[in-house]
Each structure stands twice: as structure tokens, then as C-alpha cells.
Design a protein around this nucleic acid. Structure first.
Lengths: 330, 330
DNA sequence: CGAAAAAGGTTAATCGATTAAACATAGGCA
DNA sequence: TGCCTATGTTTAATCGATTAACCTTTTTCG
């Protein structure tokens, strides 16, 4: 800016006004044009850091997910970045790897960089960190997961209803011994899936049996699945349907029962949360609960922007419905 | 910082020195401790923007890929972000959607934010933009793709060799009428794949036939695949093997020939670039050329950091070998 | 004609840090 | 005693913008 001012022979203030289209009616048109031309000629690029420092608006948001390489999150990330871009925002991102500590560290880094807001898929134990954000009045929106005890914005699936509908569908189809394999975690959204499962059974007069539900840790799904599935299939009489709590679990489970020689859906019906691309060409395409990822991303950024720009303090707690996509496995 | 200085009764300069562990041997230890304590007490967070503005180092890098929701890139992104984090860098990202214009816009935005360097998967027509970066002496590394005419850093697959080895393998297995389906594009890395394919055929005394290679546009693969595959299968005598230029193409092709009732590999062998998760449970798991994604990400960031920090002007042009993973489809 | 209004610009403080240079006090030593 | 060196801290300029407040000059008009 200094260079431009010098070259044109004016003050930097004027250059700033012109380049930001401010006080347009107070500035000589020819001079303004000359300034603009010179800016172009010198290939002037505004230093966004200086701008942000002065205006206390960084036009940056931070995105923290558990794993950006997970299609679920990378699909959301894609949307979020695009929508942010449309509103002149840039996105910083990081993977927390399901660690509340890492997540907090990322948030700290982002805060030091003065992000205007955060979109977070919180890990177990993130409550404290979120409370901290609230104290500092840093706008944020949770995605995918949330904490019912915390008054925060969130955009998530209506997990209870989704599981409920999935199980209802299985019951409608005549399956009665319906098991569930899910993740062992305190995360509310996964608990909801279990409650939905149990609720649907109860409403049809079937008492949920503890042996029918297997919870396995997030980290060692790969080794635990065979064991757990074997247990479910070892029950007498055998389970005739399984609801899977996530795409990872479905993938591993189907591969296992396929190796064992069970036929889907004759021996065992399968229905899962999330789309499982890896099972697309399985002889019995798997029925699943599709999450509206683009919509989640869009809403998340929209809610965040509303909060940031309009200083809108009203909470947005959005639960989206899953779409039950029926294929050959149920 | 001002608050800390005031509370302790010193100048902000001293606070800065202490908090950055500078001039340690010149500063009163007790006082230093008091400053540190007070900083903690006041929950002091350094404003990275101000810091960057002054030091002309933003500790930020920009990542531009064509589509972050593509597993290929999201896997690389995951690594890049982690490695960057380890070196105190934060990552901005954006998807260019294979548009050189969008890519240039993203780069501009990132440059205005004073990124210290860029990692780019360039689109067709990006040469100009890259030349601009060079003129401005902004460090960058290309990933996945590069331009042989441009003297830039890059980390990519040795596509010629990969295709060559893939075809050689097919020939070894006794296939002789080997077709190829690839993307229609000026991008060098994809051309290399075709050259590798042709090179391998020639070296075995088979003249590459133009009808054997089908190039389809990046955008309309979905609609073009059936047609193109039908053409290949309509040749007399029929093709007995296909090399696919990308995971997307393989996915669509396999689904199509499966629908047509062809048996793999009896009727047609299939070998593809990239891993194709969606075909994991296909009755004949697809052989593929695995790209070393983690290594690519790691190298990319390493080369970039070397360039940025050590002012290393030496070019790093890295071509990594693909791993031929043989399964049932060949 | 002369005062107020309009037009067109400039000054200078500020955002939150960093850092070279200056300053002040105390101790060492001939 | 007086000069030098260490030690410990402050001053003030700076990074690249923004913007309220102020200053000139020219018009307008009763």
C-alpha cells in the first residue's frame, strides 16, 4: 500500500479507502481509478494478516474432525470449505484422532490464529474444552456428535429415530432375533443408536436382550469383530438380523460372515449406518441408513456464520433424518 | 501481553522475551517466573496474526487438491496435516475441482494470508499460475501431478513404470489383447500411464492399436463408461484384459461388465490404478497398483519445509514406485 | 460579499506482537 | 576513585493494514 500511495502521490489512507470501496462519493473518481490501476500494475495483494489484526476479523474458520481421511468427514469437509469460500472464509483443518486432548490442542492453535469460529466433531471427553470455548465466547457448531447436557449449536443425525426405523423395518420384514454391533463409547450419538434399537424392539413387544448387543472399542474393531460376530452367531437360536453401528463395523462384519460362508440375507440380514462403498459389489448389496452429508455441512456452516456475523446467540440444535436405503441385504 | 506487563509491572518487551525464552541469561529468574505465572493466570494466548505480521512467517501452509472428498487426497491430507502440525505449521485447504481458475483463486487467497508455502495437486492449465508462484518466490511442491516442462518440486508416482509393470504382468499371465481405459486430459501423469502401457506392449512385440485405448473426459465418466466398455468388448477378437487409469473408472467399469454378465478374470482380466474399496467384496477382488499415499504426503511436506526453512533452492523431483497388488482379477 | 456546506485528502492512533538499541545500576579492578 | 563490564530492563520503531478526526480548498447561496 505504501508503494501505491507513493507512486500515485497520495496517503495510504486514501489508497485504503479506494481499494475497499469506502467513502466512494467523497473521492475524486479519476484519482480513485488511478489508484486502482496502480494497484493492479504493482500486483498489490492485501496482507490479510494485517487486515485481520486491525479489524479483529480473520475470515477464517477451523474445522476439527476425528479423521479427515474418513469419507464421512472428507465429504462434509468438501462442502464446508466450498460454502465457506462463497462467504469469503478460509478453512483451517485438523484431525483429532478421537482424542479430546489433540482436539483441544488444535482448537488452541486455531484460536491463536484468531479463527472467527469452529466446526467440531467432538471426541469423548470434549465437554471441558467446549465449555472453555463458551466462556471465551468463541462461536462453534458441533457436527455428527453432541452432548445433551451442553447448550451448544449442533447439526447431527437423529440417531434414535434412524435406529428405530431401521429396526422397525427389520421387524416388518419378519426378522425377530435382531442383534446390534456398535462402538463402545460414551459418545451420545452412538448411545442414541442403541436406544433407538432397543426402543423399536420394546414397542413391538420384544425385550431387548443384553447378549444381543455387542459394543467394541473404536480402536480395535478389526480384531474384535470376528470374535463378537461369532458370539452373536453362536446364540441359540441364532440371530437372524444385525444392525451395524457404523460403516467400519459393517465392512468388517460382512467380510467376516462372508468368509464363514453365511448367506445374506437368507442366513442373516444386515443393515448398517452410513454408506459402505466397499460393499457395493457384494452379491447382496447392503441396506443402509444414509446420512445427508451435504446438508449437514451446509447447515453447519450456515449456523456458524449466523452466529458469527449476526451475533445471533440463539442456539441451533438440528437433528436431520436418515434415509433408509433398502437393498438386497434385508 | 499488555495486561501481563501491567500486572507484573514491567514492559511488554520483557514479557515477550520471557515468553519466547529469549535472552534467558540476561533476565532475572524470579521475575521471569512471575511473568510466566501471570501469563498462565491470565490465560494468555499469543496472537499469531500479530506475531506473523511482525516476523513475516505465518507458520501456515496451503493445500490445494482437486477434491478433498476423494479418498486419494483425503488420505494424503491427513498425513500432511499431521506432519505439518509436528513442525508447528497449520494447514489451510481447498478443492479446485479440476479447475485451474479455482485453483489460482485459492492460491491467491492463501497468499494473501501469507502462507509460507503451498502443496498443490495442479489441474490442467495450471502452468501459468505455477510460473507466477515461482516469480513471487513462493515455495511450493506439486503432488500427484506435475509438468515436465516446468522446473518445480514434485512428488508423484512413476506412472510410466507403473503402467509398464502392470501391462507386463498381464502379458506374463498370457493376456495379449490388452485394452486401456483412461481419462481424456492433457495432464502429464495420465499421459505417462498411457505411454507406459504402450511401451510395455511394444517391448513385447505387440503394436498398440488405437482402438484399444479409450479416453473419456473427467467430468462424464459415469455416462461414458458403458459405451466405451461396450466398444472395447465389441472388438473382434475381444479384448481379454483391461488396464484402468483410475479408481473411479475401475469402479464404473467393473459394475458395468458385472451387469453384463462377464466373468472376471475368465472373460476379462481387470487391473487398475489406485485402490478401489468399492470392489473389495467383489467375487474377484481386483488387482491394482497401489500408490504410497502416506509416503507421498510425508515427502511433500518434507520437501516443502526444506525449501521454506533452509531456503533450499535445490529442486526435489521425486517419483515413487507403485506396488503391484495381485488379487483374483488377473 | 461572506459564512456555511461540500468535496477531497491527510494525520496519526491503533491492532498485538518483536527486537535493535539505549539506558540504568551494580560490581570488578587497577 | 574512576572506568569498564555485566546484568537487567525499557524505549520506540516496525510489520501492513484501518479509520476517526481533522484540515484545506472550492462551491453554494441568502
Amino acid at each position: 500500500m505504501k508503494d501505491i500511495a507513493q507512486k500515485v502521490g497520495v496517503s495510504t489512507a486514501l489508497v485504503s479507502y479506494v481499494l475497499n470501496n469506502q467513502k466512494v462519493n467523497r473521492i475524486n473518481k479519476e484519482l480513485a481509478q488511478k489508484i486502482k490501476d496502480t494497484a493492479k500494475e504493482l500486483d498489490y495483494r492485501p496482507n490479510q494478516l494485517a487486515k485481520s489484526l486491525k479489524t479483529a476479523k480473520s475470515l477464517t474458520i477451523g474445522l476439527i474432525v476425528s479423521d479427515i481421511s474418513n469419507p464421512f468427514f472428507s465429504n462434509i469437509a468438501r462442502i464446508i470449505q466450498e460454502e465457506a469460500d462463497n462467504s469469503k472464509y478460509t478453512v483451517l483443518f485438523g484431525s483429532s484422532d478421537e482424542s479430546a486432548h489433540k482436539s483441544a490442542q488444535l482448537a488452541d492453535t486455531f484460536i491463536n490464529r484468531q479463527v472467527d469460529g469452529l466446526i467440531i466433531a467432538p471426541s469423548e471427553g470434549a465437554e471441558e474444552q467446549l465449555a472453555y470455548l463458551q466462556r471465551r465466547e468463541i462461536p462453534f457448531v458441533l457436527i455428527d456428535r453432541y452432548f445433551p447436557a451442553l447448550e451448544t449449536n449442533y447439526v447431527a443425525l437423529d440417531n434414535y429415530r434412524a435406529a428405530y426405523e431401521a429396526v422397525s423395518h427389520l421387524l416388518d420384514k419378519g426378522y425377530t432375533r435382531i442383534g446390534m454391533v456398535t462402538h463402545e463409547t460414551g459418545l451420545f450419538h452412538l448411545k442414541e443408536r442403541r436406544y433407538g434399537y432397543e426402543g423399536a424392539l420394546k414397542d413391538r413387544g420384544i425385550a431387548p436382550h443384553p447378549d444381543w448387543v455387542k459394543e467394541i472399542s473404536l480402536k480395535q474393531a478389526k480384531t474384535a469383530i470376528p470374535e463378537v460376530v461369532d458370539q452373536l452367531l453362536g446364540l441359540v437360536p441364532r440371530m437372524d438380523a444385525l444392525l451395524m453401528g457404523s460403516n467400519t463395523l459393517a465392512d468388517l462384519t460382512v467380510k467376516h460372515i462372508h468368509a464363514l460362508g453365511y448367506k445374506v440375507p437368507k442366513d442373516l440380514a444386515i443393515l448398517t449406518f452410513d454408506e459402505v462403498e466397499s460393499l457395493d459389489l457384494f452379491y447382496a448389496p447392503i441396506s443402509y441408513l444414509r446420512q445427508p452429508l451435504p446438508e449437514m455441512g451446509r447447515l453447519a456452516i450456515q449456523v456458524l456464520l449466523d452466529n458469527m456475523e449476526k451475533n445471533n446467540t440463539q442456539l441451533s440444535q438440528i437433528q436431520l433424518p436418515a434415509e433408509l436405503v433398502l437393498r438386497a441385504s434385508t
